[in-house]
Write a protein that binds this DNA or RNA. Sequence first.
DNA 1: GATTTTGCTGTGCATCTTGTACAGTGATCT
DNA 2: AGATCACTGTACAAGATGCACAGCAAAATC
Lengths: 170, 170
Amino acid sequence: MPSDQQSEHSDQPVDELDARLLLLLTDEPRLGVLECSRRLGVARGTVQARLDRLVERGVLTGFPPALDLGAMGYGLTAFAVVEIAQGRRAEVCEGLAAIPEVCEVHATTGQGDLFVRMVARSNADLQRVVDHVVDVPHVRRLSTSIALSTPVPPRVRPLLERVKGRPPRG
Amino acid sequence: MPSDQQSEHSDQPVDELDARLLLLLTDEPRLGVLECSRRLGVARGTVQARLDRLVERGVLTGFPPALDLGAMGYGLTAFAVVEIAQGRRAEVCEGLAAIPEVCEVHATTGQGDLFVRMVARSNADLQRVVDHVVDVPHVRRLSTSIALSTPVPPRVRPLLERVKGRPPRG
DNA sequence: GATTTTGCTGTGCATCTTGTACAGTGATCT
DNA sequence: AGATCACTGTACAAGATGCACAGCAAAATC
């Protein structure tokens, strides 16, 4: 009973088996290689090789612990659009990175702006955090909005499911 | 050589040992319980118990695989502020959730708006994705900006390091 | 002040997993 | 046709896990 092998794997950075493996690990990240191989119906060595290759290709970067900031006391998430002085992005980013509550910064199109995600323990605490951000040199303007809810939490699943569902080249 | 025990652990959802453990797992997520106990200089059972409790408290929600969307072919990340018709948030969110490239949706303060993170394979592909989003019923206006770079990638580390560094109640 | 509870330690053991290696087979590439 | 590649199936030593238990110290309860 030979396998169907990879049909044309070089086009796709992630083929169907990869996608199934990653979906499996998404749902039950603590599974070992052996258990994965059982569930996927392939040999253990195959799973091991796939994982190695995914890491090698940079697709799979690790298994970081997922922390619920809410449960840690940081119940508030806020987004801010930051306008900065021209040509000062690096410095501003450095300043922002020094604030622990700043969890993510992107440089976006628009007018040389930054997009910041931050967390806080309460409204009062958010005020403090925002003040810190404003105090970063070369920050011109700050427009903050609070996340009231997160209807779609960060996810990659659908992208994987598409790979899994369709034949390559889809 | 008795331990220092937990000084006053009920105030903090995460005490110093928890933080050190989580930091360790953040840096090397594939470490086993035994290896963690060795590095932290505590008994294996302690690490096991801590992990169990962190999960129980909802702080540690798992170890999902971290995927690099860029390496998967989705080299483009974009953010969009979506204005929607009043009272239609649930429907709109459902529509957005059906689009695989939509990786995250938050409802924010402002004017009943949504904040969306999405990915695409290319500029042309982003156009397609944006079109999908616009086609979601009750979406009024869409303001998109592309992420040029990510000076601070999603992180939690600094928050943990603060817990680790300071005595409780800090 | 005495008792109970809670958390950490250190130990042990059976079972399962991992890392690694290797031969065999069918498909794809040259 | 020959070489290469990916997957299979097997094997074995080394190590990790799950679980249990007794001892001890600090904190909370009575």
